[in-house]
Design a protein around this nucleic acid. Sequence first.
RNA 1: GGCGACGUGGCCAAGUGGUUUAAGGCGGAGGUCUGCAAAACCUCUAUUCGGCGGUUCGAAUCCGCCCGUCGCCUCCA
Length: 458
Amino acid sequence: MIQLYNSLTRTKEDFVPIGDEVKMYVCGVTVYDDSHLGHALSSIIFDVLARYLEYRDYRVKKVQNFTDVDDKIINRAKSDGVPWEEITERYINSFYESIDGLNVRRATVEPRVTEDMPEIIGLIERLIDCGSAYELNGSVYYRVRSNPDYGKLSGQNIDQMLEATRGELESGKENPADFALWKAVKPDEPMWESPWGPGRPGWHIECSAMAFKHLGEQIDIHGGGLDLIFPHHENEIAQSESASGRVPFARVWMHNGMLRISNGQEMSKSLGNAFNVKTALKEFSPDAIRLWILQSHYRSNPLLDKKLMGDAERSMRRIRSAAEITAEDVIESEKSLNADSYKRRFIEAMDDDLNTPQALAAIFDLCRKMNRSRTDGIDVSDAAELVRELTGVLGFTLEAPPKKAEGLTDTAVEALVQQRKAARAEKRWADADAVRDQLDAAGISISDTGGETAWSRS
RNA sequence: GGCGACGUGGCCAAGUGGUUUAAGGCGGAGGUCUGCAAAACCUCUAUUCGGCGGUUCGAAUCCGCCCGUCGCCUCCA
């Protein structure tokens, strides 16, 4: 039985989907800049969740949106002096480049706000009809007081929040905590026609509308970063439940932790220290980045530190070399390593609220067991197959790290390797070592196994 | 001010009442293998879980206080 921690109830709960298909919605990105490693963290975690659910024989429909109408996009368009559509197009492509590079599978549906405008407007109309929203000067606001449950996710209560929000308040709202569902048009901003006049949707309504459209009015899992709990997810719950009358809107709310940067501060865009995914991928393999993330539990706050990614790169080599063992590499043997207990450990760990550090520990232990068994003349090809299976569930590619562009060509390396081979055959060790040093300097490492010499770029 | 998270070895990080005197990874030390290396394997690397009290037959795990770090309450994965 899979158990997941539900932010709404603050407990781990047995996961029981409503229907025969898991309906999962994950808050996507606002496309106004390149993706940073925080996005990578969230994407990888919910990628692993979807992969694991499928591994456990669930059918999964995952919806992840693009917010392509937003203040930050408008501002970016202004500062770049281009139409806002160009900004969103550019960064949607950039997002895909990053996410593909990280071997994150695409969601089943990836809706954009601009493409689901009729549903958004329709949902706002429903909210007005049921008394949960009101129009004011061409804008529409959600009436927070209409919902006694408001605040249940974040543990906030309206009065306390208001104390904190003293100061600038939009005039005319019934309650300062009421939030915009529809924003009346301002000069030079994207706009759509609506029953309340031209304007654009508020931030929160899109997710409710898209979840309703693509998944239905009650869903199994809703995911996103911890920072979205308030106000975004709180508002999403309020809107969705007011409109549909179905409670809860999402059975399980899952929130991933925030990246920490080395000096202890949160990594946030406003600090301007975002670490670009594409930049990271130039230096580290997607597997190293994934391992670095999955070695912490998804609800913790991993340290963003290049050293740790480098450590993960080295760790990956162990797993990769174990996974690379195929039937041909195996010594003829009657005895075969039975890896069932490792598979059970893996599943047990993942069932327990996606405990990837424990699941990885099972894989590392299995790799060690395989190496040990191999020297004992035991057939480990089935175990290697299991390593491939389990690492696949975690989304690893098992591909070697990116090749350094500079340096020697393959043929040049081969020539040097042959040169060294000759030297070794004649026991001219100094010459052989000189070649090895030369290769090493060019970022190529060598290993002599049996009669053969293997080389790889590091 | 309100809501919340966290503090485990040199670094990262599981574990949340007994089979854990604490998994796994990285790093380090020694060894096997090797011409020497690399990789791999073996052994070692926290009697201890921020501090102080308490509950309990028994706590890193529960309770209280204190110290420290961080997040949310405004846009953020």
